[in-house]
């Protein structure tokens, strides 16, 4: 028996949900709108919502004034670099734990998780000093290393929960049919593991892209990713809201789209498999 919902009730829920949804989304919408205004219109009072002279000049000016592209490249390098290195380290570990678990596997997983709970500020000073002494402050290498380590536990965990869902029987079957280890991996396991690996990468890219603590503390002008670059708008000489909005829109748009596509995997990754 399907539950019947009265049309009236459905209409009421529709209105309520849309109003709340739009309210929550509003700051983002407002940022995007402001990015197409002139600086004068951005602070106009009363504010103009849609009827203003749409302009693209903020987008070009942000690039001209601050070499925006450089920070985009930094963000891409850090998030993709740390994801790739993390993957190389995490896949074998997760694989081993999922397919040949021992008595200690669970303990190791729990311990890895506990490292994620170490507050960054507790190790700020040593990390800062180590990188300073190695001459790595404000370099991409430093941030890639930090981001890889910060997200490694999540990667191992998430891959582990995906790998565990691959039925071990299928390996037996392949072996019976005379498949060697290489064939086993290439033809049987890889196709089944790819979706899990892809979602793990996606989550890791999102997390690394939006990370702010280490980005702000370990970088200055040259290696600053977008999170740190945007922070430089916090003490503007004058009000540059339209440019701030343009810089922000470009910084959040790609991740917002990625995030929208990966909601489910995100739930799983962020709760360490506790909620699927």
């Amino acid at each position: 028996m399907a539950r019947t919902v009265s049309t009236q009730r459905k209409a009421a829920v529709t209105v309520l949900a849309w109003v709340i949804g739009l309210l929550i989304f509003f700051p983002i919408l407002w940022t995007v709108l402001t990015s197409f205004k002139t600086e004068g219109e951005a602070i106009a009072n009363p504010p103009s919502f849609l009827f203003f002279d749409w302009t693209m000049e903020n987008y070009t000016e942000v690039q001209e004034r601050s070499n925006y592209l450089r920070h985009v490249v930094n963000s891409v390098a850090i998030s993709f670099g740390s994801t790739l290195i993390g993957l190389i380290i995490a896949v074998p570990a997760a694989w081993a734990m999922a397919f040949s678990p021992t008595k200690r596997t669970k303990g190791i997983l729990m311990w890895m998780l506990s490292t994620k709970m170490l507050p960054a500020v507790g190790v700020l000073m040593p990390i800062y000093l180590i990188f300073r002494d190695l001459g790595l402050l404000d370099t991409l290498i430093a941030l890639i290393i930090v981001m890889t380590m910060v997200n490694l536990p999540i990667m191992v965990w998430m891959l582990y929960t995906y790998f565990k869902e691959i039925p071990a029987d299928i390996l037996e079957a392949a072996r019976m049919d005379g498949a060697g280890l290489r064939q086993e991996i290439v033809y049987v396991l890889a196709p089944m593991a790819v979706p899990g690996i892809a979602s793990t990468c996606l989550l890791n890219i999102i997390l690394a892209w939006n990370e702010a603590f280490w980005s702000l503390n370990l970088t200055a002008a040259s290696a600053a990713p977008l999170t740190a670059f945007i922070a430089s708008y916090s003490s503007p000489e004058g009000l540059f809201w339209a440019k701030l909005s343009a810089a922000s829109t470009m910084a959040i748009a790609p991740i917002l789209v990625l995030g929208w596509f990966s909601q489910r995997q995100l739930v799983r990754g962020l709760t360490f498999g506790a909620v699927k």
Partner: peptide, 22 residues
């Protein structure tokens, strides 16, 4: 649903500055 979860994907420096200023 997409509208509601969107703020979670906004980097902290952007959300803070957008709220602070605009």
């Amino acid at each position: 649903r997409l509208l509601v979860i969107a703020p979670f994907f906004v980097m902290p420096t952007v959300s803070a500055l957008v709220w602070k200023n605009m």
